[in-house]
Design a protein around this nucleic acid. Structure first.
Length: 924
RNA sequence: GGGUGUUUAGCUCAGAUGGGAGAGCAUCGGCCUUACAAGCCGGAGGUCGCAGGUUCGAUCCCUGCAACACCCA
């Protein structure tokens, strides 16, 4: 009963419940029922929980908890990603701090270091996921570098290679000269930066004194030029096509070619062609058979392909040197400033160099088509649907995917080379030897690893036992294809598309049936949250609270740009002058749900969390009230009266809405329905109406017992309905409430989710209850508007036709006590229809006039103005409706139901107006 | 340059089938009413970005424009 004594303290309930849930095995994949599965997008093992995770996991956990309660055989698969580059960078940085270098350690020792780091520091995200209440199946936790997972990766590689999807080749790739690895198109971020356009004269061979002036943003690449191109229809240069020009400094003679890729308007209209260091030039070069001359090494320094005095120069030093030489030679025609797109690696920030190397690629043409088909024919559904367009558009333009990386941490490519350099692909060296009869021939394995996204593209099935033997793949049969994928729009291409392609190619089925795309969490100003901006929030700081100094320290430590410190400090002090209060996990989760509408980005607003913490407090206190007033509850109570029928009807309606919200991924509707129901229906009205009945147990024990039963039953249902969003508080409260109702079961999380009950929908009870609310609201508003004390009892007079009075009397049998209690009515008296009423404040509720005599208090002028106001509004409404009804087109074409509705509206308004005008005239 | 999304109360956002507009927060007034002051009661607040079109009727559908955001080149 300690629950009754204390107020709501989230921390006190959250700490113990999760441990108990997990230890009890409640999160483990279910054993019966229709399968429902979600794979967690595996967080990077290097990661710590950020707002995006917290948001995403709240939604996934709600879906999973809902499915589990709804009787599904539910799996929420846990796991983390080895995150090749990110992890390797962290460990390298740690080594650098100890003045160590990975090349000094050697590959094997370095990988041991990475594992050591992972085992010691890689578990932070798991702890945080538990703190958020995520009901993940930890017993199935998978790491993408686990031995079984690695086996699946090799299998996938070999099968794709056998199917002809994977090939090795020398191609132009995006090269990161800092990390010294190839990266994929998606890992390159292009931004416009200030640059220059250099106009350079290339002498025409055999025509002394004639030049072709090319324009370029990268003069240093001229050392690799193997052609100059003009537009074939450009009359200015038509005579040059077929001639040769001499590339200055390099001294090479190259042809002038015509290619429609050249824009006649841009620059000089002449383009130098460097097939080895530009993607577009590479295509032009291929069309015209131009050689590809690689002038850079892996660190983007000039190689022997450059003149000897320039060799070894880094590319931007080379640029300076070359521009200077050109100037001296008089070959620099002009320099203009120019905005250029600079491609940078998303990890290192280094400027990416298109670079010719041997890499492994995945062919996209056939796989692309199967993926697009799966989305087009509805086997995979995007929610919201418009993301399917984005997906298709991207797939249309997709290029072959470079899957090899020059890193050490990751899945090593299962390919071996003999001494002649011939490549063999297989699951293991032994398999390769046997298959190709290589016996003892020296073989060495490919040094490269696979891109991380290659292994994570297998995530939905490699976690379930694939390829495995029949016994170990039972989970695969049960849970694949998975039910839903929940992710942000930023990784549709990185991950979603690749999962669809890989899964279809390897399993012949889709990886998931629905993809719910949620928005990104931004700060209150709509800015992306990031460490470098210093505007990030740690979700657990919202949960547990943090003082200003700690928050400042957190936001300003290890800044990449220390000059931003004062700005960040100012902004933080302004937004959180007192730090952040503790709100509890449930309030934060509910906030995320409430903000999650239609997949758009969300601006995170702390005042919303405040509001939902208050909501938790409300629920807590409502339960305290329920428990306090049902101590003597005994079974066998009746169904109760109108109020009970009303609240049960409202509950049924809300349950229907909740289920629809789950089906449509509208977590905002889910949240608002539950909030409205609990606060404004259950607490504001039902519990208030219940009080007189509960307190009159001695005079009317049956009624009191029925009320107790309804108070408890509705509360118990709504706790179940709310549980997927607010697991902690609902569990703590449900355990108390269920005890009182003698419900079996240890935990709310394994109770059935409430089912919509059509039989509980009760229109009559709803209109009766609404009538009562109108009467009470009149009394309250009337008092408030006239400045009368809210507590002072006032008599209430009712007047109407016989039938109206008869209905009212029936309703009063149930609600007289309620109206006296909630409206502070001293007595309720009926006036004969024709009788003259005393000077009163009045209102029309339907066809009944309700009034409070205010002899002496009433100011006639004020009352008259009040009525005039109401009359004016009614007249306006009537005018609109009459205009419609006078329109023959409307009568002809509008649906009958709408016409009828308008006719009724007009009738009601007319009679109301008549009454109001009578009252107005009577006010003297 | 191409594409997608957004534009509704002071702020953050709903508006589900086209039938004259909703919530939370903030704000104003009144309440220590035996669950809750993290509360209760009541009020005020809108040219639904702009211009056309379709329709009996448009916040909603169509076209154009503007602003903002993101993606691609």
């Amino acid at each position: 009963m300690s629950l009754l004594d204390r107020g709501f303290e989230p921390d006190a309930i959250e700490s113990s419940l999760y441990e108990w849930w997990e230890a009890s095995g409640f999160f483990k994949a279910g054993a019966s029922g229709e399968p429902y599965s979600i794979m967690i997008p595996p967080p990077n093992v290097t990661g710590t929980l950020h707002m995006g995770h917290a948001f995403q996991h709240t939604l996934m956990d709600a879906l999973v908890r809902f499915a589990r309660m709804d009787g599904k055989r539910t799996l929420w698969q846990m796991g983390t990603d080895h995150a090749g580059i990110a992890t390797q960078m962290i460990v390298e940085r740690q080594l650098a701090a100890k003045n160590l270098d990975k090349s000094a350690l050697g590959r094997d020792t370095f990988i041991d270091e990475v594992w050591k780091w992972r085992n010691e520091s890689g578990g932070e995200i798991s702890r945080q996921l538990r703190r958020m209440g995520s009901s993940l199946d930890w017993s199935r936790e998978t790491f993408t570098m686990d031995a079984e997972y690695a086996c699946a990766v090799r299998e996938a590689f070999v099968r794709c290679h056998e199917a002809g999807y994977i090939y090795r080749g020398k191609r132009l790739v995006n090269w990161d000269p800092v990390l010294k690895t190839a990266i994929s198109d998606l890992e390159v971020e292009s931004k416009e930066e200030d640059g220059s356009l250099w106009h350079i004269r290339y002498p025409v061979v055999g025509d002394d004194g004639e030049f072709v002036t090319v324009a370029t943003t990268r003069p240093e690449t001229m050392l690799g030029d193997t052609g100059v191109a003009v537009h074939p229809e450009d009359v200015r240069f038509a005579h040059l096509i077929g001639k040769r020009v001499r590339v200055p400094i390099a001294g090479r003679e190259v042809p002038v070619i015509g290619d429609s890729y050249v824009s006649m308007e841009f620059g000089t209209g002449c383009l130098k062609i460097t097939p080895a260091h530009d993607f577009n030039d590479n295509e032009v070069g291929k069309r015209h058979g131009l050689p590809e001359i690689n002038i850079f090494d892996a660190e983007a320094k000039l190689t022997e392909a450059a003149p000897s005095h320039l060799q070894g120069l880094e590319r931007f030093d080379a640029r300076k040197a070359i521009v200077k030489t050109l100037e001296e030679l008089g070959l620099l025609a002009a320099v203009e400033s120019h905005r250029v797109q600079i491609p940078r690696g998303d990890r290192s920030g280094a400027i990416i160099e298109p670079y010719l190397t041997d890499q492994w690629f995945m062919r996209m043409d056939a796989l692309r088509d199967t993926a697009v088909d799966a989305v087009t024919d509805g086997r995979i559904e995007f929610v919201p649907a418009h993301y399917a367009n984005l997906f298709n558009a991207w797939m249309r333009d997709i290029r072959d995917w470079c899957i090899s990386r020059q890193l050490w941490w990751g899945h090593r490519i299962p390919a071996w080379y003999d001494e002649a350099g011939k490549v063999y692909v297989g699951r293991s060296e032994n398999e390769v030897r046997e298959k190709h009869g290589l016996e003892d021939a020296p073989l060495h394995q490919d040094e490269d690893v696979l891109e991380t996204w290659f292994s994570s593209s297998l995530w939905t099935f490699a976690t379930l036992g694939w390829p495995g033997c029949p016994e170990s793949t039972a989970p695969l049969r049960d849970f694949h294809p998975t039910s839903a994928l929940v992710t942000g729009h930023d990784i549709i291409f990185f991950w979603v598309a690749r999962m669809i392609m890989m899964t279809q190619s390897l399993l012949g089925e889709v990886p998931f049936r629905q993809v719910y795309i949620h928005g990104l969490v931004r700060d209150a100003q709509g800015q992306k949250m990031s460490k470098s901006r210093g505007n990030g929030l740690d979700p657990l700081d919202l949960v547990d609270g943090i003082d200003l100094d700690s928050l400042l320290a957190k936001r300003t430590s290890n800044l990449m740009q220390p000059q931003l410190l004062p700005k960040i400090e100012r902004a933080t002090r302004k937004e959180f002058p007192n730090g952040i209060a503790a709100h509890g996990v449930d309030a934060l989760r509910f906030t995320f749900a409430a903000l999650a509408s239609t997949g758009r980005d969300v601006r995170f607003d702390l005042s919303r969390v405040d509001g939902y913490r208050n909501f938790c407090n409300k629920l807590w206190n409502a339960t305290r009230f329920a428990l306090m007033n049902t101590k003597d509850y005994a079974h066998g109570a009746g169904d109760g009266g109108l109020a009970e029928r009303w609240i049960r009807s409202r509950l049924a309606t809300r349950i229907k809405a909740c289920r629809r919200a789950y089906a449509e991924y509208r977590f905002d509707w889910l949240a608002s329905n539950l909030y409205e129901f609990i606060w404004h229906e259950y607490c504001d009205w039902y519990l208030e109406v219940a009080k007189p009945s509960l307190w009159a147990a001695e005079s009317n024990p049956e009624s009191a017992a029925a009320t107790q039963r309804c108070v408890l039953e509705v509360l118990e249902s709504l706790l179940r309905a709310l549980h997927p969003l607010m697991p902690f508080i609902t569990e703590a409260l449900w355990q108390q409430v269920s005890k009182r109702l003698n419900i079996e079961g240890d935990t709310v999380m394994l109770q059935p989710y409430p089912v919509f009950d059509q039989a509980s929908i009760d229109e009559d009870a709803t209109s009766d209850f609404d009538w009562m609310r109108a009467v009470v609201t009149f009394l309250r508003t009337m008092r408030s508007e006239r400045g009368l004390p809210p507590g002072e009892p006032l008599p209430l007079l009712l007047q109407g036709s016989d039938s109206v009075v008869a209905t009212a009397k029936l309703r009063l049998q149930e609600f007289e006590g309620t109206i006296r209690h909630l409206g502070r009515a001293s007595k309720i008296v009926f006036l004969d229809e024709g009788a003259a009423a005393p000077p009163s404040a009045f209102e029309l509720v339907g066809d009944m006039k309700i009034m409070v005599p205010l002899e002496g208090v009433l100011d006639l002028d004020t009352e008259r103005r009040r009525i005039e106001n109401v009359i004016q509004k009614a007249e306006q409404a009537l005018k609109r409706t009459s205009a419609k009804l006078a329109n023959s087109q409307f009568l002809q074409k509008a649906p009958e139901a709408i016409v009828l509705e308008e006719q009724q509206k007009a009738q009601t308004l007319e009679s109301k107006l008549t009454r109001l005008q009578q009252e107005h005239a009577a006010l003297h």
